[in-house]
Simulated scan of single mutants.
Amino acid sequence: MPGETPAVIRERCPLVMEADSRVPEGKLLSVHFMYSRGVVDPIMSERPYDAAAHMMLSDKQRSSSSRGNLSGDAFETVRRWILDGQLEADTVVIEREVALRLGLSRTPVRDALRRLVGEGLLRQNGRTIMVNAIRTEDVLEILVLRRLLEGEGVKLATHRISPGMLDILYDREVALLQMEHITAEAHWDVDNMFHATIAAASGNRLLARNVNELRERTRLYGFDQIPQRLEPGRQEHCQILEAMREKDAERASMLMQKHLQQVADAILGTLAV
């Protein structure tokens, strides 16, 4: 809960850490990310702390595969507007206005909007293009797929991820619970780091790519619709990290699937009110 000390939170949400597995004094686990259309494949190694080199997994660090390509840049920018909530559901997106805002001609913007329609973030009715609203049934279907993918992904990641990275993920969970006011963005950053890092650590790029894309779709639903899941979700994350620390891949998988089912149950609960 906000205001609690790290010691109290650690007691409520224990993570087994052997002394000899901690990151050496004066060092920090650095993470080098290779990007493939926003999919992160971590290569983890210990090295002296370098603030410039120490990169945390964050949705804001996505690198467009179309960098230097005007259509690709427009696609990534408008996509970010949608995912960040700058363009809300059912907002009409006018090609000319987007082009003016980006300082581009209409041709690359038109191509970008077509791609976003194809991804389901926009919908087109005749000549009108609007931001797609994600339906509750869409979220529930996505969560079914995520249970399958992330349940398998965490099994693979358990034997590949480093103890230092588990420490980093755990500390981010603790820091979030200590915040007096948790914003939607802060929640997303921590939640995304947890799920995306584990998916990437599976070593399966296709799995990681699909997990990331499915998560971004559910992001449009908004965690503020199920605020009662905030603290339980953090505790469930800690339990998963503990199982990974103990190299118990089966338990980690079971806990991950249970965690995502709890999210689905909470969403269903809002419909029953």
Rank of each mutant, 00 (worst) to 15 (best):
N69D: 14
Q61R: 15
Y35P: 03
S71T: 12
S71V: 05
G68S: 09
E46N: 01
M44Y: 06
E46D: 06
P42N: 03
Q61N: 15
S45A: 03
H54L: 11
R79F: 12
D41A: 02
D59G: 06
S65T: 10
L70P: 03
T77S: 07
R62F: 14
D41L: 03
Y35R: 03
A53T: 10
A51D: 13
D50G: 04
S58F: 11
S36N: 13
K60E: 13
Y35C: 07
R79P: 07
A51G: 10
S66V: 14
G68N: 02
R47K: 09
R67F: 12
S58A: 15
I43D: 10
A74K: 00
S63T: 13
G38K: 02
V39Q: 02
H54A: 15
M34Q: 06
Y49T: 06
S63C: 10
I43N: 04
R67S: 09
A51V: 12
S64F: 08
D73S: 12
D73A: 04
R79L: 08
M55Q: 12
L57D: 00
D59V: 11
Q61H: 14
Y49R: 04
G38C: 15
S63R: 12
S45N: 04
D59I: 11
S66L: 15
G72P: 05
K60Q: 14
R80P: 08
D41V: 04
A52V: 08
R47W: 09
E76R: 00
S66Y: 13
H54G: 07
N69E: 11
R37M: 07
S66E: 14
F75C: 00
E46G: 02
E46V: 06
S66Q: 12
E76V: 02
R67L: 09
D73F: 04
A53L: 11
P48V: 06
I43R: 03
K60M: 10
D59K: 04
M34W: 06
P42S: 01
I43H: 06
R67K: 06
R62E: 13
Y35W: 15
E76L: 00
W81R: 00
M44P: 00
D41M: 02
S64C: 11
V78K: 00
S71W: 09
W81Q: 01
S63Q: 13
R37L: 04
S63V: 15
S71A: 15
R80K: 12
R47S: 06
S64V: 05
R62I: 14
L57G: 05
L70K: 06
M44F: 11
D50P: 01
V78A: 01
R79A: 07
V40N: 04
P48L: 02
L57Y: 10
K60W: 12
